Simulated scan of single mutants.
Amino acid sequence: MSSVSAREALRYATDDEMLKLYAVLVGGWVLLLVGQFAFRTAVNPAVTFVGFVVALAAVVALAAVVAVVSGVVAVAYKVLSES
C-alpha cells in the first residue's frame, strides 16, 4: 500500500465533490433532529393538529434516513472507487 501524505488526504477530504456529499449528510442529520422535535411536539396535548404533526414528522424522519444512508454510501463509494 502506498503512503499518502497528510496534505493529500486533506485535499481529498475537502474536495468540492466530497463537500457536496458532506452537505447531504449534515442535511440528513438536521432533518432527523427536526423529525424528532416534531414527534416530541406531537405527544403534547396542547397541539391541535396532532395528526398533521405526526405525519410531517414521519415524512421528515424518512427523508432524513434516506439522506444519511445515501450520503454514507456515496462517500464510501467515492473513497473506494478512487483508491
Rank of each mutant, 00 (worst) to 15 (best):
M1Q: 12
M1R: 08
S2G: 13
V4T: 14
V4C: 10
V4R: 14
S5G: 15
S5M: 08
S5L: 14
S5Y: 14
A6Y: 07
A6P: 10
R7A: 15
R7L: 09
A9G: 08
L10C: 11
L10A: 15
R11P: 07
R11K: 14
Y12I: 06
Y12L: 15
Y12F: 09
Y12M: 11
A13G: 07
A13K: 10
T14R: 14
T14W: 08
T14D: 07
D15E: 15
D16N: 09
E17V: 11
E17F: 04
L19H: 09
L19V: 15
L21M: 10
L21K: 09
Y22S: 05
A23G: 11
A23Q: 13
L25G: 08
L25C: 08
L25V: 11
V26W: 11
V26Q: 12
V26T: 15
V26I: 14
G27Y: 08
G28N: 08
G28H: 09
G28E: 10
G28D: 06
V30L: 11
V30K: 01
V30H: 02
L31A: 01
L31C: 02
L31H: 03
L33K: 14
L33Y: 05
L33N: 10
L33F: 04
V34G: 00
G35A: 12
Q36D: 14
F37Q: 15
F37M: 08
A38Y: 03
F39C: 06
F39G: 05
R40A: 08
R40E: 09
T41R: 12
T41K: 10
T41C: 07
T41N: 02
A42H: 02
A42L: 01
A42F: 02
V43N: 01
V43Y: 04
N44R: 02
N44F: 01
P45H: 01
P45K: 01
A46K: 05
V47R: 00
V47Y: 03
T48W: 03
T48Q: 02
F49K: 02
F49M: 06
V50L: 02
V50D: 03
G51M: 07
G51C: 03
G51R: 12
G51A: 06
G51K: 13
G51V: 04
G51W: 02
F52Q: 13
V53T: 08
V53P: 00
V53G: 00
V54Q: 00
V54H: 00
A58Y: 03
V59W: 03
V59K: 04
V60F: 01
V60G: 03
A61E: 13
A61N: 10
L62V: 08
L62W: 08
L62S: 15
A63D: 11
A63W: 01
A64V: 07
V65I: 04
A67Q: 12
V68S: 09
V69R: 14
V69D: 07
V69P: 07
S70M: 12
S70V: 01
G71E: 07
V72W: 02
A74W: 00
A74N: 10
A74L: 06
A74D: 14
A76C: 10
A76P: 04
K78L: 10
K78Y: 06
K78F: 06
K78T: 14
K78A: 13
V79H: 05
L80H: 06
L80R: 12
S81D: 15
S81R: 15
S81Q: 15
S81I: 05
E82S: 15
E82I: 07
S83V: 10
S83T: 13
S83G: 08
